[in-house]
């Protein structure tokens, strides 16, 4: 992934303080040393179980959560170091699309105004031209422009997600962070939105950071994939290499858990992955996956495995591979 990165994240840590437990202050290691970069015009997928830190990583890229440590660079701007005016200007380059097309749009505003808002806020284009810009954005995402006068509740889930994309595209961002953008949609609508996202990327060259727990969707859309477990990336590779040659036991278990059309005679046994991920408060000492890993060794419970290149830029952190 050395070609011209648009987004570069180095050693990102996001820790949340919380004082609930036994009145002692505890720290939630939501994101705990994550590095990746996304080349311009490409898509990086982040996958992992609930609570692994995907959303927190996305929010950090938008500076919507306090960054504990590390750097985030978008183009030439070091987002993680900017304040106020500069941050506001740099943020123009990044937009976000949320999971829930139902709650992410203000129900009291007409969708045309929702799409126009970022144009007004960031003073993009002459005021007189903005109606035309909204019109063009609607066409771009496949909505009839006259629908701009309606309210969100008058739209279907798929249409609302199109409105969300139109709003995200309004500032002509270079990077769009998508947190589970199709998870709430039916498969037929999902296909329409995924095709639209690809078309927009081809036409406009936008870069996507794409979060999803659906591995089929990620395989279809993403050029590179990072697998997160308890706040860290445990494996990262290009799409073909990751899916055809998964190296980390966690990735293997995750792939095996996906239901697929296959023989039901029980001949193919999946790797059993029992239990839930441990909490990001009391982290295990060695490998964070050791408690659930079907092939864990003694060493795994005390020594932290390093994320290393296992050939052709395919990164994985597991003692078995050393």
């Amino acid at each position: 992934m050395s070609e011209d990165p648009l987004l570069e994240v180095r050693d990102l840590k996001v820790h949340f303080g919380s004082k609930k437990l036994f009145r002692k202050s505890v720290v939630v290691h939501a994101v705990d040393g994550v590095s990746f970069s996304v080349p311009k015009g490409k898509t990086l997928g982040i996958v992992g179980e609930s609570g692994s830190g995907k959303t927190t990583t996305a929010l950090a890229v938008l500076r919507l959560v306090p960054i504990t440590d590390g750097t985030i660079r978008i183009g030439d701007a070091e987002i993680s170091a900017l304040e106020k005016e500069e941050l506001r200007a740099a943020r123009r380059k990044v937009q976000m699309v949320f999971q829930d097309p139902y709650s992410s749009l203000d129900p009291r505003r007409r969708v045309g105004d929702i799409v126009r808002e970022p144009l007004d806020l960031m003073e993009i284009g002459a005021e007189a031209d903005r109606d035309q810009m909204v019109h063009d954005l609607f066409v771009q995402v496949g909505l009839r422009p006259e629908l701009a006068k309606l309210f969100p509740h008058q739209f279907s889930g798929g249409q609302r997600q199109r409105v969300g994309l139109a709003r995200a595209l309004a500032t002509r961002p270079e990077l769009i962070v998508c947190d589970e953008p199709v998870s709430a949609l039916d498969v037929a609508v999902q296909a329409q939105i995924l095709n639209l996202m690809r078309k927009l990327q081809e036409e406009l060259g936008v870069t996507y950071l794409f979060i999803s727990h659906d591995l089929g969707v990620v395989q279809h859309l993403c050029d590179h994939v990072a697998v997160m477990y308890l706040g860290q990336i445990v494996e990262q590779a290009d799409r073909i290499s990751l899916f055809s040659n998964p190296q980390h036991p966690y990735t293997q278990a995750l792939l095996a858990a996906v239901p697929k059309a296959r023989a039901r005679d029980g001949s193919e046994k999946r790797i059993p992955l029992t239990g839930d991920p441990p909490s990001p408060i009391n982290l295990p000492k060695g490998c964070r996956f050791a408690g659930r890993c079907p092939v864990a060794m003694e060493k795994c419970h005390s020594v932290v495995p390093e994320l290393r290149d296992r050939g052709n830029g395919h990164l994985a952190s597991c003692h078995l591979l050393d």
Binding site: A191, Q192, V217, H220, I240
Partner: peptide, 25 residues
């Protein structure tokens, strides 16, 4: 319905056609 789902492949190919769509709502 079956054609529009991006199925997880064990050996994904380089070529990625657009998903097939059921038009309309």
């Amino acid at each position: 319905l079956i054609a529009c789902v991006p199925h997880l492949e064990e050996n994904p190919s380089e070529i990625r056609p657009y998903l097939s769509e059921i038009k309309g709502v």
